[in-house]
Design a protein around this nucleic acid. Structure first.
Length: 263
DNA sequence: ACCTAAACCTGGGCGC
DNA sequence: TGCGCCCAGGTTTAGG
C-alpha cells in the first residue's frame, strides 16, 4: 500500500494523536511483524517510553522516544496505523492519553523494529528534499545500466518511490519504463525529476492512493486513485493521445504505460 | 554489476 | 456458494 505520499499522510495523522504520550502497554496479537527481537523483549523495551515526534524517512516512520531510543515502522504492502481497530490488527500500543495505536497488517509484510539509537537505514536520497536537484538525479541514474523503472523502485538509489508513483512519473515524463537509466538525455532527466516531485506532491495533496488497502490514521481513504493516469488503467484510453494504456510485467512488477506517449 | 526467480504472507476479485 | 486462479502499494535473498 504505502509509498512516500501514503506514509507521509499517515505520519501527519498519527503524530498529533501520539505526541507527548507514553506507551503504557503493548499487545502482540501476531509477533511476525516484530523483527530482530523476541516479543517479550520488545514489550519490555517499549513500555514506559514517551513519544516525542515522528520522522518520516522514505517509507519508514521513526518514532523518536524521550530516552533517545527509536521505534521504527515499515508498512509493507497492507500495513495500517489506526486508532480504531480493524480485523487485521497485529500489534496495539495503549497510550497514556487514552488512545490506542493499532498496527494492522493483513499480509504481514510490515515490519516493526526497536533501535537503541537513530537507525542507519540504507536508503537513497529523499526525492522531495530541496537538495535533490535534477543534476543529482542524473548523477545517481547515470551509473545504472538497468531499466529506469527498476532503478526508480530501488530504495538504495532513490527512496520513497514505489510502483504506482514510478509508473505515473514515467508517464508524465514521457519515458518508456524499459529505457536504460544511464541513457536518458539531460532534458529527460529534468522532465523525470519534475515528474517525480509532481506525482509525489499530488499524492500527498490528495491524501494518498486508495486502490486497495490504504487508509489514513483516521481510517479514511485517499483520493489520488481518481487522478492516476496509467497505473491500473490497462486497456483504457491514454489521457493524452487516446491510444491504449498497456500493462506488462517488468522487474516482477505490474508496469503500465502508453506506447505512443512514452519513448 | 546486473538479471531473474522465489520467498515472505493473506485477502479481494473474478470467472465458472 | 465454492473453488481455482490471478492480482496486489514492498523488500530480501539466492543463484546464474
Amino acid at each position: 500500500m504505502p509509498e512516500l505520499p501514503e506514509v507521509e499522510t499517515i505520519r501527519r495523522g498519527v503524530l498529533p494523536r501520539v505526541k507527548g504520550a507514553t506507551i503504557r502497554t503493548v499487545e502482540i496479537i501476531d509477533h511476525r511483524n516484530i523483527k530482530k527481537i523476541k516479543p517479550a523483549e520488545f514489550k519490555k523495551k517499549v513500555v514506559g517510553q514517551k513519544i516525542l515526534d515522528i520522522e518520516r524517512r522514505a517509507k519508514y516512520q521513526l518514532f523518536k522516544l524521550a530516552s533517545g531510543n527509536y521505534l521504527v515502522f515499515h508498512l509493507g504492502m497492507t500495513g495500517r496505523m489506526l486508532f480504531s481497530p480493524d480485523k487485521y490488527v497485529k500489534v496495539s500500543f495503549k497510550l497514556s492519553n487514552g488512545r490506542t495505536l493499532y498496527f494492522s497488517d493483513a499480509r504481514l509484510f510490515g515490519k516493526i523494529w526497536f533501535y537503541d539509537k537513530y537507525p542507519e537505514l540504507k536508503l537513497g536520497p529523499e526525492p522531495l528534499d530541496k537538495n535533490f536537484t535534477w543534476q543529482k538525479l542524473k548523477e545517481i541514474l547515470s551509473v545504472k545500466k538497468t531499466s529506469i523503472k527498476v532503478v526508480l523502485l530501488d530504495q538504495k538509489v532513490i527512496s520513497g518511490v514505489g510502483n504506482i508513483y514510478a509508473n505515473e512519473a514515467l508517464f508524465k515524463a514521457g519515458i518508456l519504463p524499459t529505457r536504460r537509466a544511464n541513457k536518458l538525455t539531460d532534458a529527460e532527466y529534468k522532465k523525470l525529476h519534475n515528474a517525480i516531485a509532481d506525482v509525489l506532491n499530488a499524492g500527498i495533496k490528495y491524501g494518498g492512493t486508495s486502490d486497495s488497502w490504504y487508509v489514513n490514521a483516521k481510517g479514511e481513504k485517499g483520493s489520488f486513485q481518481d487522478h492516476l493516469l496509467v497505473y491500473g488503467r490497462k486497456g483504457e484510453p491514454c489521457s493524452k493521445c487516446k491510444g491504449e494504456v498497456v500493462r506488462v510485467s517488468h522487474g516482477q512488477r505490474g508496469t503500465f504505460y502508453c506506447p505512443k506517449c512514452q519513448k
